[in-house]
Computed example of a mutant assay.
Amino acid sequence: MMNALLAHRLESVPQTDFQQQRHDEQCSAVVDRGLIVQSSFNTICAIEYMKSHNVAPQVIERVLLNPQQRRKERH
């Protein structure tokens, strides 16, 4: 019961910009490695790699199948 209450309280805490940024950076790193997997092996391996790291399906599709829609690197 106590764990459920704690989990509910943690879910209701708003995510800070720092937490969102950290998640975005982690996801970006996974996507970058997925692109390396795609170029080294094949697209199926890259899809499976990104899926195993919880990258959203629409992101996987966009970065692997539509390279012109990738975000520009920050300088």
Rank of each mutant, 00 (worst) to 15 (best):
M1N: 02
M1S: 11
N3H: 12
N3Q: 08
L5H: 08
L5G: 02
L5Q: 09
L6Y: 09
H8A: 09
R9Y: 04
L10F: 13
L10T: 06
E11P: 07
S12C: 12
P14W: 00
T16E: 00
T16D: 00
D17H: 01
D17N: 03
Q19S: 01
Q19C: 00
Q19T: 00
Q21R: 10
R22H: 01
R22T: 02
H23M: 04
Q26W: 02
Q26P: 02
S28Q: 08
A29V: 03
V30E: 13
V30I: 14
V30R: 06
V31A: 05
V31L: 06
V31N: 05
D32Q: 07
D32C: 03
D32T: 07
R33Y: 09
G34H: 03
G34W: 07
L35A: 03
V37F: 04
Q38G: 06
Q38V: 15
S39H: 08
S39I: 07
S39G: 12
S40T: 11
F41W: 13
N42L: 02
T43K: 10
T43V: 14
T43R: 03
I44P: 12
C45L: 11
C45V: 07
C45M: 08
A46P: 02
A46V: 11
I47R: 04
I47Y: 04
I47V: 08
E48C: 07
E48S: 02
E48A: 07
E48H: 05
Y49A: 10
Y49Q: 10
Y49H: 13
M50D: 05
M50Y: 01
K51Q: 12
V55C: 08
V55N: 11
V55L: 15
A56I: 13
A56Q: 14
A56G: 08
A56E: 11
P57L: 10
P57A: 15
P57Y: 10
P57C: 06
Q58I: 14
Q58R: 12
Q58N: 14
Q58D: 15
V59Y: 09
V59H: 06
I60D: 00
E61M: 14
E61Q: 12
R62D: 07
R62P: 05
V63S: 06
V63G: 08
L64Q: 05
N66T: 06
N66G: 06
Q68H: 06
R70L: 03
R70G: 01
K72T: 05
E73A: 14
E73Y: 15
R74Y: 14
H75D: 04
H75W: 01
